[in-house]
Design a protein around this nucleic acid. Structure first.
Lengths: 409, 409
DNA sequence: CTTATTAAGTCAATTGTCTTGACTTATTTC
DNA sequence: GAAATAAGTCAAGACAATTGACTTAATAAG
């Protein structure tokens, strides 16, 4: 009964932790390399052929991998390559945005199989969750229709919504996201769907999407700048999404800068200059307009002067943000993504160039310092759906460790 | 022979990887909690009593842990607490700075047992390494004198020097650190000492020191701002030092800001305003002066107006840097450390307050947003020495994984 | 065409490490 | 005293990777 001073320690592991890791490593290797033989896997993972054989056999039995046609590639017995089976696992993603809620169903390789969208009345979470649960239900039924196997292969529900979490948010926020954040959303959705639920901010979800099916695929160190209604960054560090102490890492929209033209000592959040919200304000558009995306596309194509002004201003701020991120994280690449029309995104990324000098300027670069990612209003929802897949199948330190059983008092 | 497209994968693990992890977890738990019984360790690590018993017995045999007096703490058999044995392992740290080189020897718990210092003639690495090797040799002999066990318990040599690495540095750099960076330092020192050598930048070393024996001890998420001749940050993310793609993560001194008073659009590196280099410039002091530390202390105590100006200016920039770091990393705390006199550091940290609003402003904070760390010219050398200890004994993902044997071509 | 070489993959036994469940020991509480 | 509680050990068992020999199937060389 010495509960007075809690003992702090990392947890240990055992053979099952090792085995779980090795399974994940196999799946990760197949995801990254497309297809590999058992011998390839043995070499790549430093395990023995025999160990790989056992694991692959087990994964095949679980319906997660399948063999392809035998290939002859020189001397020696031909090899049998294996690939991931897309229908091996499915997950649902939910994006709760300020004015719209989207659901996505994906499979093991990130293919979108079903989607749903609904405008959420600004009535707070109690009414909202009902609508959301029915939307999820509809998406699940659609998923089961196109992929009947999914019924018993759903690994979880990923939820993405604007951050930051656990902060006393701006009381003037017309979307009352603060209300949502105080609401026990995960618990409500978990009990309402029977699925394992995990919450993350929209930028993190966007980064997860970029990692699985986008521009950050295959990078161990990548930063995804997500320019949506707000501005955030998803941090992929050592191949894993970094969350910070409170799940708020990457909230770069709240970095205080001295904006161009601002007076001495006056600092304003980055996202007041570089976000869809700021663009809407300049263009006097209603961010809740369901056709916002098309309007923005039109106005960008029409070379609206106000759009050009916004681009110049946002690009100035983002140029600084890119330099800050390069300098603090030393990533392999930075990806700009977000719910903008591709044309606008392209103009924005062009306007950000030339980039400021930073430690990222090295001769032996294999990836561009800044590249365009998924510009797709569904990207965050895809990332939300990819999160349970990643959590279930990607090799992660925490997946090796034993979980502490909540011992009897 | 399909070496054309290298296969990318994380490596697998086996029972020995798990076992190595569990040993590290025990050591980590003892380091964090001071002393624990086998039953405590079993609960804390989620391993069985039996597993813990075996591991502790082995660690005791290796001379890394030792038992303390039996304690009765209620009903049941009394427990036997264990603690780390400081003499269980030793490491040497080397700090190569612009004008001075220092060596430190520490034991398993970070106690300093020997130190050495020498002014390095600005003659480049060829001459320098000879001097350094003899300094290391002197420190090793001193270490063996005070702790004879160290002779066969030296786990490595940690080297800290100013970053960034792998960049075409400023050709005007009077200290020619660029020359040092092109020099195969690790290899030379490894062959010269017979020790395992690892290189890191000075801010990372400072963070390692803060983690082991300083203000960041026990934090899983902490950022250490190191204000030395330059300015950098050591990033402790999920309990591990984050290095980035090229070992340059945290080089925040190279963040380009628009300094207070600067004209429109003009950006300058942070460390031009907030570093000992900038202070020396203002005070017209020679940074190579061996008595610099004392001079700075005197001038800070004497309320020199130029010092006050520098503090105000540096504090302005650092206030912004703290806000950027809080916003991007969401750490539990930020530690300000560096080779300044404590009085100056105290004035600087006071001047940085009040901090800017950020996501770190939450009601349930357990640690201060910004705190003072080690202000000790030897901190970086201590951190350099702590690195091999950390690498050898701390639980880390990579320590679980199998190392790929460089297979025969 | 035959044989050597090379590589993929399997089989069966072994090893290392944690787990399990019963047991011993030592202390406090009733 | 007797019961309860907790620390720690003992011995057997389970699990997952390793080891080394073996099988299979292809190309390369003579």
């Amino acid at each position: 009964m010495n509960e007075m001073r809690p003992i702090r320690a990392k947890s240990g592991t055992n053979q099952e932790g090792a085995s779980a890791h090795n399974r994940r490593v196999m799946i990760d290797a197949l995801r990254l390399n497309g297809q590999l033989s058992r011998a390839d896997l043995a070499r790549a993972t430093a395990l023995t052929k025999q160990a790989v054989s056992n694991i692959i056999e087990e994964l095949e039995g679980d319906g997660l991998v399948a063999s392809l046609a035998v290939v002859r590639k020189g001397r020696g017995q031909p090899s049998t390559p294996y690939r991931l089976v897309p229908e091996g696992a499915f997950a649902i993603g939910l994006q709760i945005d300020r004015h719209v809620t989207r659901t996505i169903a994906v499979d093991l390789v990130g293919t979108v199989l079903a989607r749903g969208e609904v405008n959420l009345p600004a009535g707070g979470p109690e009414r909202g969750t009902e609508i959301i649960l029915s939307l999820i239900d509809r998406t699940r039924r659609e998923l089961v229709r196109v992929a009947p196997q999914s019924r018993d292969r759903l690994v979880g529900l990923g939820v993405a919504m604007p951050g930051p979490f656990g902060i006393d948010t701006d009381p003037d926020d017309p979307w009352m996201m603060a209300l949502w954040q105080r609401f026990p959303l995960s618990e409500t959705l978990a009990s309402g769907t029977g699925l394992d639920v995990r919450l993350q901010n929209d930028a993190a979800a966007a980064a997860t999407a970029e990692k699985m099916v986008g521009a950050a695929h295959g990078f161990e160190q990548a930063i995804c700048i997500y320019l949506g209604y707000g501005l955030g960054a998803g941090l992929i560090l050592d191949g894993e999404l970094y969350r910070g102490a409170n799940g708020n890492a990457g909230e770069i929209g709240m970095i205080l800068t001295r904006p161009r033209g601002g007076t001495e000592d006056q600092r304003a959040p980055l996202e007041h200059r570089a976000s869809i919200a700021s663009l809407c304000k300049i263009l006097e558009l209603d961010p809740a307009d369901p056709d916002l995306y098309r309007h923005l596309d039109d106005m960008a194509a029409a070379s609206d002067g106000r759009v050009a002004d916004w681009i110049a201003d946002a690009a100035y701020e983002l140029r600084g943000a890119v330099q800050i991120l390069e300098t603090t994280f030393d990533p392999q690449t930075i990806v700009l993504c977000g719910g903008m029309p591709p044309g606008l995104a392209r103009r924005l990324i062009d306007a950000i160039h030339p980039l400021l000098p930073s430690i990222a300027e090295r001769r032996m670069r294999s990836a561009p310092r800044l590249q365009l990612g998924l510009t797709n209003p569904w990207a965050v929802a895809i990332g939300a759906a990819a999160e349970p897949i990643s959590r279930t199948f990607d090799p992660r330190f925490s997946a090796i460790l034993k979980t502490r059983t909540p011992g009897p008092s």
